[in-house]
């Protein structure tokens, strides 16, 4: 794909210091492609998370030129001066290089359904054997919103609150809903949000966690 190649300077925060890698890359490639290229041709010790390479798994989120982005969905051509800094997400424990441990976020999410009804063709009954058309939730649990959220007090955070909200909307059992609401309106719940809405701005899949928090407040 694409034949325009240029020298790029990719500076990656490793432990305390940025390490610069200068290499020739096609403008069409992504930051994740660049990381692969560095790892396989320059430094096999470079570590980063990745899996699907198309913005669905959420593993490759990092801070690219100061903003939380998915490395696989960020193209080199977005950076005309060809100098790009990459560092791990804030607010998570760093395992190595760009690898962070997102357990602290996922542990706050309800372990319930990751499926929801599809918004497509809702008026048409699906084939026999299927109760309703389904699809995965939008949130890919990448951690970008947690990293960008400026709230420093104990707070569940944007994506866990969004997950709790979507779960409340899906649940029918009043006891389950009561439990979820207790989380949403508890000490570390929606009251902790300072309404910066940076979460919604950085979300790579437009979950709009800020909107979910606003709606939770309205439904209190």
């Amino acid at each position: 794909m694409g034949t325009d190649e240029h020298m790029y300077s990719i500076s990656i925060l490793r432990e305390e210091e940025y390490m610069e890698f200068v290499l020739n890359l096609s403008d069409e490639l992504t930051i994740l492609d660049a990381l692969d290229e560095i790892r396989y041709t320059m430094d096999s010790s470079l570590q980063y998370r990745h899996s699907c390479h198309h913005g669905s798994c959420g593993t490759c989120a990092c801070i690219i030129e100061g903003t939380q982005r998915l490395a696989c969905m960020t193209r080199l051509s977005e950076f005309p001066d060809r100098k790009i800094s990459v560092r791990p997400l804030d607010s998570f424990r760093i395992i190595s290089d760009l690898v962070v441990d997102i357990s602290s976020m996922v542990q706050k999410m309800p372990v319930n359904s990751y499926l929801r009804d599809s918004e497509l063709n809702t008026e048409v009954l699906p084939p026999d054997g299927i109760a309703s058309w389904v699809r995965f939730e939008n949130c890919i649990e990448c951690g970008s919103c947690i990293s960008a959220c400026p709230v420093s007090e104990r707070f569940l955070g944007p994506s866990p609150l969004a997950a709790i909200h979507t779960e409340i909307l899906k649940r029918k059992d009043p006891d389950e809903i009561r439990e979820l609401r207790a989380l949403a309106y508890g000490e570390t719940g929606v009251s902790g949000c300072d309404k910066h809405f940076i979460c919604s701005r950085v979300c790579p899949v437009k979950v709009s966690p800020g909107k979910h928090i606003t709606e939770l407040r309205r439904e209190q």
């Binding site: 424990r93 395992i95 441990d101 997102i102 357990s103 996922v106 542990q107 999410m109 372990v111 319930n112 990751y114 649990e141």
Partner: peptide, 15 residues
């Protein structure tokens, strides 16, 4: 199988 979210609670990354 457990939910994928259980993965992070079960000792990955040495937790």
């Amino acid at each position: 199988l457990p939910s994928h979210r259980e993965f992070y609670k079960r000792g990955y990354h040495g937790n």
